[in-house]
Nucleic acid binder design. Sequence first.
DNA 1: CGAATGCTTCGGTTAGCATCGAAGTATGAA
DNA 2: TTCATACTTCGATGCTAACCGAAGCATTCG
Lengths: 227, 227
Amino acid sequence: MKDGPDIARLAALIGDPARANMLSALMAGKALTASELAAEAGIAAPTASSHLARLEAGGLVRQRRQGRHKYVTLAGDEVARVLEGLMGLAAGTGHLRTRPGPRDAALRKARVCYNHLAGDLGTRLYDSLAARALIRAEGESVSLTPEGAAAMAAFGIDVAGLSRGRAPLCRACLDWSERRTHLAGSLGRALLTRIEELGWATRQGESRIVRFSPAGEAAFRRDLAPI
Amino acid sequence: MKDGPDIARLAALIGDPARANMLSALMAGKALTASELAAEAGIAAPTASSHLARLEAGGLVRQRRQGRHKYVTLAGDEVARVLEGLMGLAAGTGHLRTRPGPRDAALRKARVCYNHLAGDLGTRLYDSLAARALIRAEGESVSLTPEGAAAMAAFGIDVAGLSRGRAPLCRACLDWSERRTHLAGSLGRALLTRIEELGWATRQGESRIVRFSPAGEAAFRRDLAPI
DNA sequence: CGAATGCTTCGGTTAGCATCGAAGTATGAA
DNA sequence: TTCATACTTCGATGCTAACCGAAGCATTCG
C-alpha cells in the first residue's frame, strides 16, 4: 500500500549523518558555503559537494552562486518545519537521553528555527499573542487581528510591507523542545530581527542559540509576552 | 554543529523503502501482522522481521503479541504527525509529479490519518468547528469549548469519557494534501468512529481511503461542517 | 500427538553508497 | 600572466545493510 507520496526518498536524504548535520547547521537560518558545511559535517570537500548536489536535487536546499563561493540555505519554511518535527520525535524516542548540558539548556530556552524564534521564549511569545487576541489561530494558518497589527506596528514592525510579500504573514511551527507551537512566517522572522535590532538578544556564534541579555529578557517579557 | 537531537538515526529508519511502505500502511491506523506488512512492503518474512525489530527499537512502532501473531501499530500520534509532514514535503518537492489517478483523488478527498479523518473533508470539518467556535485553537493544543462539548454530545460522542483518558482530547495535525490542519486527538478518533457507525462512510479495503456515500457526505456537510 | 502456521535466527551474498585522493575547472587576487 | 582559493568530477576503496533460503521455535488446530 503505497498510498500517498513517496516518503522514503526524502527520509533517506535526511537520514545520512553527514547530510543531517548539514541540515541542522542550516536550521540556524544563515546561508553557509560548501566548505563551511563540509567542516560542520566533518567530511572532505568532495564528499560535501556530492551531498549538496543530492540535497538540492531532492529539493531540501537551495544554492546561490556568488563568485567562487556557493551559498546554501534551506529550501524554505516547510523544510525547516519538517526538520523541527523530526527533532521532536528524535528527542522523545531518542535512546539513552544524556543529561542535557548547559548548551542544551540554552537551546531549549531560546533558539533560531530557520529564521524565527523558537524554544521556551518562542512558545511563550506565541501563547501570549494568542491569549491577548493579537493573533488568531485557525489551524495551521494563523492570522493577525487588527489589534495585533497595531501592536506590531507599535513594536516597530512594518506589517503592511510584510503583507505585500508572497510569503504567509503568520504560520504555526511545532517546537521540538517544548512540544508546543511558536510563530513562524514573515512576521515571526520580522519579530526576531527586531529583537536583535533592539539589542535584546544576540545569536550565539554559529549555533542556533539565541542569547538574551538580562535586560533584554525582562523587556521581552514586559513588551511582548506579558502572559 | 550538532545542535538539537539526532535526526539522522530516525530519518534513516524511515528512509528505507521497505520500512517506509510499512509505515505508510500503518498510517491507515489498523494493527497489521508481520506477514501482512511483509506483503505490503513486497519483501520476504525474514527481512520484514528484521525491519520490524529496528522500527520498534527506534520507537516508531509498537508490537503486541497475540497467540502466534504479532500485531504492529504506529507508536503514537506524534509518529503519524511526522510521517504526514514528510508526505507533505515529498508531495511538494517530489520530482515528476505524476498525474493523480482516481485513487489519488479519493485519497485527497477523505482518508484516514492514523485514526482520524484527513483530506479535504477532514480540513473542512476542522475549519467549520473553528469558525463556529466549537473548538478553539491555541497553537498546537486545540481545546473544546462548552458549546463544542454540547454539539459533540448531540452528535453521539461521549465527551466526558474521552476526557477521562490520558490522551489529549484535541490536537492539530497538518494535512499533506491540503496543507491545512485537521483534527486529531481522541475526539478526532471518536468523530471518525461515529461517522462510520452512522454509515456515512466506510473504509476502502486496506487502504487509507475513506469512501463517503452521497447521502453520508450530504449529512456530513449538513451536521458537521455547515461552514 | 503430529501437522500447519507465524515468526525469528543464522549465514552468506550482493548492491549501494559514503568516503577520500588526485586531477580538473572556475573565479579572484597579485 | 601567475598563483591561490573554492568547488566539482573521476576513480577506487571499503563498509554497511538489505535481502533471502534454510533451519529453528512457538502456537494453534485436527
